[in-house]
Write a protein that binds this DNA or RNA. Sequence first.
DNA 1: CAATATAGTTCTATAATAGGACCAGTTGCG
DNA 2: CGCAACTGGTCCTATTATAGAACTATATTG
Lengths: 150, 150
Amino acid sequence: MKRTGFAKADCPVARALDAIGDWWSLLIVRDAFDGLRRFGDFQKNLGIAKGMLSARLHKLVELDVLELVPASDGSAYQEYALTERGRDLFPVVVGLRQWGEAHLYARGEARSDLVDQTGQPVGQLVLPSRTGRPLAWSDTKVRKAGARKR
Amino acid sequence: MKRTGFAKADCPVARALDAIGDWWSLLIVRDAFDGLRRFGDFQKNLGIAKGMLSARLHKLVELDVLELVPASDGSAYQEYALTERGRDLFPVVVGLRQWGEAHLYARGEARSDLVDQTGQPVGQLVLPSRTGRPLAWSDTKVRKAGARKR
DNA sequence: CAATATAGTTCTATAATAGGACCAGTTGCG
DNA sequence: CGCAACTGGTCCTATTATAGAACTATATTG
């Protein structure tokens, strides 16, 4: 009755969810995108149990999504910083954000916003074809592992 | 000791994860994108326990991500079809896929691919500014709920 | 109309999470 | 310097969630 795992799946979606698809990892990564770096900051901001946070941070470090670096304030403590692999999760977090914005808020309800450096709200995520044309779900299909090109 | 919830959070990422951030929901949605619609198809493809699947499908219907429709083969059974809200999860699933492709496969390891109708692999997800310029994480910031525009 | 397929529900054992107690090293302050 | 508070954990227990199997009702096939 061990929790089902997908670390060996053919499907990259399954592997990604196996790695970071638990209840906390993406919220920790979101906080890291917002500039949080210290154990206590994550703990306070998320209201997560310290044992959970410890386990998740260690797993994220092991996955090379976060790395331990010396504290930026010169103290003897350490901080958790996003790696390139962690920063590559940006589109995933933005995707969740935009879906949440579009479907989970009543009109006028308060929420945070993602803006660019000038304060302008960002646009919607776009999936381009190789030639740059925007693709919708119905323009795509999944080619199974090992399937020959035609 | 009830599982922490984020249904009322200010942050759309937290709300989105509260709704569909469990171990199974996004895999079910991925399968739906791949064309699966029947209870038994999901169950066979995912290897999920039937009780879990039943609970997840009901929750996804309640969230209006899936809807029950008459079976397309004319039988008396029903099928689970993606709603517009469900189809809007496409960028999230693609984001997870692209992150998994980039970071969770050894060179040469078999995996499925997302291609367009001509069989060409799709491009990377892009976050455009209002003016169409592509934005990276470091070009953006989160404006907290209720913060005044400047 | 009997056998099998579909779509579940219910039950139990195991695994994961929440919350708190506890603890060692670091820092701030008088 | 000396002590209190802060930081960053570990460990333990109660509760919740998940996996897997057994069971059931309705639909379909032969």
